[in-house]
Each structure stands twice: as structure tokens, then as C-alpha cells.
Amino acid sequence: MQTYPSVRSGTADLVRTFMARTYSWMAAGLALTAGVAYLTAQNETLAMQVMALRLPLILAQLALVFVLSMFAQRLSSAVAGMLFIGYAALTGLTFSALLFAYSPTAVITAFATTAGTFGLMSVAGFVIKKDLSAMGRFFMFAVLGLIVAMIVNLFVASSALTLGISIVGVLVFAGLTAYDTQMLRNLALSGVTGEQAERAAINGALALYLDFINMFLFILRLFGGSRD
């Protein structure tokens, strides 16, 4: 009986270490994205070049996410880390356009709102007792539905549909934040360690990073007044 507290303490330490490593990777990715976006926007020549290469850059982003997601168990943590950093940098390049499309106040307000919402939902996902794993399929279909709706809106250009998509998008990625956090906590509780833990932390950071930036984009569309 006397070993139980130490076992629980050891497990808590593993979870704390794993989650801290995951959020460290995520924070580094967000900081890199913000830094690259800001520096690119300050250089008009570079910003114009990025705009001209926007489609290839977006395709490169999708390719990196695909490789990280599909080959997560085969990549070393070093390679996975470099791919994640590369993805964050590419996202910064494409996000530089947001600093021209929206006012600085709108971007800062949307980022602060996203950070607060993300933090609350991540805490909820970590402490909530109810198993959220059954919601994974729902979120997958919800994201697919959002993609279809956004493609349709490219042709109909409906302001009402844009508003609806933005509201649903915020709710979906807020829910995904709680879901992904709980999945990562459960993974840590399974006792993952060493190289496997580092690789899992990087891939977990990617999932949370994607939740954050997608929520940010939808919130920016909701509250941000775009420039003409």
C-alpha cells in the first residue's frame, strides 16, 4: 500500500513533463510563426514575393502536415522537430498577408481572444473526467463540413454563410482543443518515455498548434474589420 503514492507521483511527473514538452514545442511554433509573419510584412518586396508564391507555399504546408501526420511513428524526433519548425515558418510567411488584410488592433484582439479560449479549453480537456474519445469522429466530420462550406462560399460569397462558418469554426476548434488535450494526457498516462515521448510531444504540439491557428483565423474573421 505504501508504494501507491510514489507510483501516483511518478505518473504525475511523467504527465507533467510530457505536457510541458508538448506546450513548449507549440509555443515555439507560434512564436516563430508570429515572428516570421511580422518580419515578412515589414519587408514590402519580400511580402510581394510571398503573395506571388502563396499557392506553392500553401501546398508545401499541406505536404509537411501530411508527412508529420502519416509518418509520425517512423520519423525520428529530430526530423519531426525540423519538419514542425519548417511548417511553422511557412505558416508565418503565408500569415504575413493577414497584417495587410486586417488592422493591427484586429489581429492583436483576435490573438488575445484565441489565447484565452485555447487556454480555457485546454485546461478543461486536461481536468475533465468524461471520456471525449467518442467525439473524435464527430469533430472529423465537422471539419470536413467546414471545408465544404468554405469552398461553396467561394462561389456564393454570402456574408451570412461566412458568419455561420466562422461561428461554427470557433466552436469546432475549441472542442478539438479540449479533445486533443485529453488524448495527449491519456497518452502521457500510458507511460510513454524517451524518444517515443519526444516524438509524441512534437506531434501533439502540431495538433494543438493547428487547433490554435484555425481558431485564430475564424475569430479574426468574426471580430476583425478587414481593410479595403
Results as ranks from 00 to 15, higher is better:
L59N: 05
T193Q: 14
F126G: 01
R185D: 14
T91V: 08
S9H: 05
A160W: 06
V79F: 01
L220K: 02
T114F: 04
T22K: 04
A12T: 13
A31M: 06
G164W: 10
A201L: 08
R74M: 00
F111N: 14
N214S: 11
L163A: 00
I147G: 03
V168T: 12
G169S: 08
V172I: 07
T162R: 08
V79T: 02
L132A: 06
G194I: 05
L53A: 14
S166I: 00
R221C: 10
S226F: 01
T162I: 01
D131R: 00
L59P: 14
S24Q: 15
L176H: 04
S133A: 15
S24R: 05
G29Y: 01
A28T: 15
L59E: 13
Q49R: 15
I167F: 15
G191R: 00
L59Y: 06
T33E: 11
M26C: 04
L187N: 06
M48G: 11
A78H: 14
L62H: 07
M121D: 05
K130I: 12
Q42N: 08
L83E: 05
Q61H: 06
A20M: 09
L210N: 00
L62G: 03
V36E: 12
L210I: 01
L57F: 11
F173P: 11
T181V: 04
T3L: 11
R16D: 13
Y179G: 02
R8C: 07
A134Y: 09
T113G: 05
M121G: 00
V15R: 02
S69W: 03
T22R: 01
I128Q: 08
N43S: 04
Q2E: 11
A34V: 09
A201G: 14
V148T: 07
F223T: 12
A124P: 10
L32Y: 02
L144G: 10
R54M: 14
I202E: 00
Q2L: 12
M183A: 10
G35D: 05
L57V: 03
M51W: 12
G86K: 03
N214Q: 08
F95A: 04
F173K: 05
Q2N: 07
G204L: 02
S122T: 01
T3W: 14
S166D: 14
A34I: 13
Y179L: 07
G29T: 09
G145L: 09
D131N: 14
